[in-house]
Amino acid sequence: MHENSRHASFLEARDLRKSFGSLEVLKGVSLEVARGEVACLLGPSGSGKSTLLRCINHLEVLDSGRITLDSELIGYEKHGEVLREISVRQLCQQRSMIGMVFQNFNLFPHMNVVENIIEAPRLVKGVSRQDSVDRAHELLAMVGLAEKADNYPRQLSGGQQQRVAIARALAMEPKLMLFDEPTSALDPELVGEVLTVMRMLAEQGMTMIVVTHEMAFAREVADTVVFMDDGLVVERGGPDEVLGSPRHERTRSFLARTVRR
């Protein structure tokens, strides 16, 4: 918190609440992320990390609270005293600024790698085919998959699919990247290649929010570590603070369990 207050906050989430039926998943969560900052969200499953991430690009509609990205309110506009839901067109515009990477990759199985990457730039931003294909090849080279351009997702390993998914999100030139447990569905030996790409993105100054169970990655790459439990933020701070000398008992017991694993 003290670390962040020096920057003008780029992403600001205020008092977010969200219930699914009678289950309250977010119980008033606030989060600030500065431009170029890498924030890792840790916590046991069911603690609300993924829901928080999905609220940031309005995949889930909040019950209350508000989110601004670069001073722009996400999902709503202010009309005097009321917040009015924005049009589908405006919402799509906002979402195109926020890249998202999913646990299960969610590549389009009926399209090859390049088609996967150029689909959104062409349809949403109206980029020409040639320009978008050129950009796709650049991005594939960056994630180390230049030679896989014509393959279908099924023909790739999980690690390769996830790297294509990262390239697909980057093709929209996002201001912010959200990672929802990007390595949880991978075989252990494939985790490294995905983390390497993410580390490279962080070094290039991309603003990133990462839900992860990879403690080593959080320790090494994160500027801020946020520990969540039961729909609330329990503790936040630099990685050395939260992972090295946690103040809360819940953080300590969670870390003790995950480190042993």
Binding site: N57, L59, V88, R89, C92, Q93, Q94, R95, S96, I98, G99, M100, F102, N106, L107, F108, E119, A120, L123, V124, R168, A169, M172
Partner: peptide
């Protein structure tokens, strides 16, 4: 697939 479509900003 629907998540991916929406997250990319497709209508």
């Amino acid at each position: 697939q629907d998540d991916a479509v929406r997250a990319l900003g497709l209508r």
